[in-house]
Design a protein around this nucleic acid. Structure first.
Length: 198
DNA sequence: GAGTACCA
DNA sequence: GCAG
């Protein structure tokens, strides 16, 4: 099941953006690379929480406790995001990872599944900040048809239940559709439970 | 042919 | 330019 439980109002969006800026000051955005090929992704990433999702040529997709460039532990997940999870996720254990993706100018992300977690019972909760993203979701196989949605600044979106393993991606970001970020572009935050049990 | 968070 |  996919659903939009709520929209953050502009005040909440700018408070959340401040939290993200604080995280990035401590754990800078970096450019992840694909397993085996080492090709760079167009989004830049960082994380908050006890675990962060990373990828590189040598070791591939995984969660780890430290930033791959600085070697430091990830900053804490902002309390307001933990509160949002409690309101909306319907899952009795807190998220362990908050992946922060920044889509600059032409950044996009191809269709993929979030399947590097041990717990697929917990939903994945996403928050969009900044320019509108064209989001594509399909089914659990690559051949199933896809649908497009616009994810606007402040949109809270949940992939759970049957759709927890749905293929999804961002086709592109529409420049100039939000004035939240001075530099333009889009932040997407995804909260995930990684390990089983609490 | 499998796999594909890239690239075409 | 956009769709798939």
């Amino acid at each position: 099941m996919t659903y939009y439980p709520q929209q953050l109002d502009p005040g909440a969006q700018s408070i959340l953006l401040g939290e993200i800026r604080r995280i990035i000051a401590q754990a800078p955005l970096y450019t992840p690379t694909m397993p085996r090929s080492g090709k760079p992704m167009s989004v830049r990433m960082t994380n908050a929480g006890p675990l962060g999702w990373v990828t590189d040529k040598e070791r591939g997709y995984r969660y780890q406790t430290t930033h791959p460039v600085t070697g430091e532990p990830w900053p804490a997940i902002p309390p307001m995001l933990l509160a949002l999870w409690n309101e909306v996720a319907g899952y009795p254990h807190p998220p362990e990872a908050c992946l922060i993706n920044y889509y600059g100018g032409a950044a996009k992300m191809g269709l993929h599944q979030d399947r590097d977690e041990a717990d697929f019972d917990a939903p994945v909760l996403s928050v969009s900040l900044g320019d509108t993203g064209i989001f594509r979701v399909g089914g659990t196989t690559r051949k199933s048809p896809t649908q497009k949605f616009e994810l606007k600044s402040g949109d809270v979106f949940v992939l759970g239940g049957e759709d927890r393993l749905a293929f999804h991606g961002i086709d592109r970001v529409l420049p100039g559709t939000s004035n939240l970020l001075d530099e333009g572009g889009r932040f997407n935050l995804t909260l995930r439970r990684v390990t089983r049990l609490g």
